[in-house]
Design a protein around this nucleic acid. Sequence first.
DNA 1: GACGCAATCTTAACAACGTCAAGATGACGC
DNA 2: GCGTCATCTTGACGTTGTTAAGATTGCGTC
Lengths: 209, 209
Amino acid sequence: MAKPANRSRDAYHVGNLAPQLLAAARTLLEEVGPTKLSLRAVSERVGVSATAAYHHFQNRNELISHLAAQGFAELAAALQRACSNGSGLDRVRAGSLAYLHFARSNPALYQLMFGPEFTDEALIPALQRERLAAFGELKRMVAETLGQALDSSDVRKASVAAWSYIHGLTSLVIHGLLPGAADNSDEHFVERTLEGFAALAISCTTPIK
Amino acid sequence: MAKPANRSRDAYHVGNLAPQLLAAARTLLEEVGPTKLSLRAVSERVGVSATAAYHHFQNRNELISHLAAQGFAELAAALQRACSNGSGLDRVRAGSLAYLHFARSNPALYQLMFGPEFTDEALIPALQRERLAAFGELKRMVAETLGQALDSSDVRKASVAAWSYIHGLTSLVIHGLLPGAADNSDEHFVERTLEGFAALAISCTTPIK
DNA sequence: GACGCAATCTTAACAACGTCAAGATGACGC
DNA sequence: GCGTCATCTTGACGTTGTTAAGATTGCGTC
């Protein structure tokens, strides 16, 4: 085996290798999962040697960091698209749906975005930026729902709460931890959990007995 | 290097190797993180050859599956301990605190428990069982909070909502995604998010204007 | 009490991985 | 036309999970 790939004579000076690598990594990511994504496989798919990537990225971590950043950017865009109108509960519903839908459409990418590689604070600027932008979009949604300023105390608390909720639900759904009812649509999961919160809220504000 | 370890003459027939491997893996897990946990390092720490583990576990995945199962068991126990008394909001608070506290005390284990290795349904029975037990504990907490039967529709919805919330918050905290306020105690995170939910609930039940 | 079976652990090896060092290739300015 | 330098390649190293085959020993059987 070990064919020379399609790496024929004009393999040198490919040109825009970095975007090509990222694109190949993106599709390969969903094919093999976040942990099995290997630099060598990505290179081979592009038709380039195994070490070519090191002239465009410091290491594997930096490559997947850009994938993660890309994911946060797309998530932010999806949130913005979904929350442009509507009010109150409808806006929360729409945002949650968009969030869950994005993650279920790109499960491996979502797992990568919240993977253990990015736990420490040594992140590339792009990732940090896009992450903050995505959270900012969520905050904007909450702020408009509450009818308060972006930096109000309520908005800050409520947006972390909302992020916790939708990220948690998404994570559970993606990992297949929610015993599959017949209907496992995005709408179903969001609607049922929102109803669940309502039941909890009622029961907590009006203590039993 | 490559010392013969403490693997002296009576290395054969160690006896209870499986528990020893699990224990070593457990401590090593928190030292190096969930992704860098290698079978070889675990074996070396126990003082046994690299392939000895294969006589007790099918592969690396089965070993870490047992770690994950162990984690869910401990989480369930912590929840049970925390939610034995109190009522209404206090019970939710106590359960959330216990959950978050467990995860922050064992961050690598928690990441492992919800890691991408266990996404598919091909799980060892122990993991599936302990997972369900932990979720059952959460459900019990919610049921007693709502004052309803364990299998009621409200309880099912609300417990998934509660799990989503606390798992999401925990995940965000562990990954360091919540911009650090001065106070980053468990109590602070739980209290603020619960207040956030309250704000959202009020604003959603009483639509603005 | 010797024998042999089977469980237990070993050494040796393989393929795949991330990564480094050194060399080949060719675009582009002088 | 020539040198420079970014770009890409080959080759290698150490580490990983995992398999195959051999060594060691506890334990039941005659």
